[in-house]
Simulated scan of single mutants.
Amino acid sequence: MRILVTNDDGIDAEGISALAKELEKEHEVIVAAPSEQRSASGHSITIQRPLLVKEVKIPGVKSKAYSVSGTPADCVRVALDKLTDGKVDMVVSGINYGVNLGTDVLYSGTVSAAIEAALYNLPSIAVSQHIGSEYYDFNVAAKYAAKIVKIAHKNDLEGKTVLNVNIPGVPEDEIKGIKTTKVGAKSYTNHYVPLRQEDGGVIYELRDELIDIHHEDNDTFYLNDGYVTISPLQYDLTNFNLINEVTKWF
């Protein structure tokens, strides 16, 4: 396959290097990633300034790689238009430094890059690694990513579907297996702390704390139980349960 690899942690991130190295063993890989850290950039695109695209070398990676002075979604768009002639079989985004579980998928640049591919009707996979006090290994995550890529391709993953993959932060021999599960609930306490007065206003810094909601049978639950989780996502936001009811209102 011809695979476009991207991320939101930037072209120099350890995760994208491990992913590209593993995938290029069996596939043709092209890397296009932000020139700097763009975590939590969501699905934003750059429209008010030009993008700088530079060919770069990722140590240990044989495949061609490009840095893009934009967002993860920008990377997918410019790569499909200018760097690959649109000839891509799958887009794989990651490996993200930190999980993308529950409602995190709404903010994640990693997931949004994969969703951007889905808008082009391309199969896509977003891969994230649990980071914390626990053990983690991007090389292990890359192995699981390559395995999931192979299985998804074999089973004709639809172009409008994104597989959101999260790898637990445990040694490889402690990973219990793979669970396909729904997206769970996750919330944060958002506190904006005033830092100083500046230019007639106040500078605030976000300091949030995670509120994990561990319902059974969702991505957060199974990841914490030691499983690699896969959640199929779609970008159609229409609430079909309410569309007829709202039609009656008007």
Rank of each mutant, 00 (worst) to 15 (best):
V88M: 08
G86E: 09
T103A: 13
A113N: 02
L83S: 01
E116G: 06
V88K: 06
D104M: 12
T84D: 05
K87G: 02
V99L: 13
G109N: 02
Y120C: 01
T103F: 12
I115P: 03
A118H: 05
T110Q: 04
T84H: 07
I115A: 15
I95F: 03
V88Y: 10
V92T: 03
A114F: 01
N100F: 05
K82S: 13
A114V: 00
D81R: 15
T84S: 11
Y97P: 10
M90A: 12
G102R: 09
N96Y: 10
N100A: 15
I95G: 00
E116L: 08
V91I: 05
I115K: 13
V88F: 10
N100H: 13
Y97G: 14
S93P: 03
I95P: 02
S93K: 05
S108I: 12
T103Y: 11
S112N: 12
S108F: 06
S112I: 02
T103N: 13
V105W: 05
K82Q: 15
S93Y: 00
N121R: 13
S112R: 04
A113D: 01
K87L: 12
D104S: 13
V92N: 06
N121F: 10
A118Q: 05
Y107L: 15
D104E: 15
V88T: 11
L106N: 14
Y120K: 07
N96G: 15
T110P: 04
S108M: 11
K87D: 15
G109A: 03
M90R: 08
V99E: 10
Y107H: 11
D85V: 07
L83H: 00
L83F: 00
V91N: 05
G98W: 08
L101A: 12
I115N: 09
K87C: 04
G86Q: 10
G94L: 05
D89A: 08
I115T: 10
D89F: 06
V111F: 01
A117D: 03
L101W: 08
V105K: 11
S108K: 06
T110W: 03
I115W: 05
S112C: 07
V99R: 08
V105R: 14
S93I: 00
E116C: 12
K82E: 15
D81C: 12
V92K: 08
G98S: 06
A117V: 03
G102K: 06
S108Q: 07
G86C: 08
D85R: 13
V88W: 07
L101M: 10
L101T: 12
D81S: 15
D89R: 04
V92H: 05
G94K: 06
S112G: 04
T110G: 11
A113G: 10
G109I: 02
G102L: 07
Y107F: 14
K82H: 11
Y107E: 14
L106C: 13
L106S: 13
E116K: 11
N96K: 14
D104I: 10
G98R: 06
S112L: 04
N121A: 11
T103V: 09
G109V: 01
G102D: 01
L101E: 05
E116A: 13
A114L: 01
I115S: 14
N100P: 02
L122W: 01
D85E: 14
N96A: 15
A114N: 03
V105G: 04
T110R: 05
N121P: 04
G86L: 07
V92F: 00
T84E: 05
S108R: 06
T110I: 07
Y120L: 02
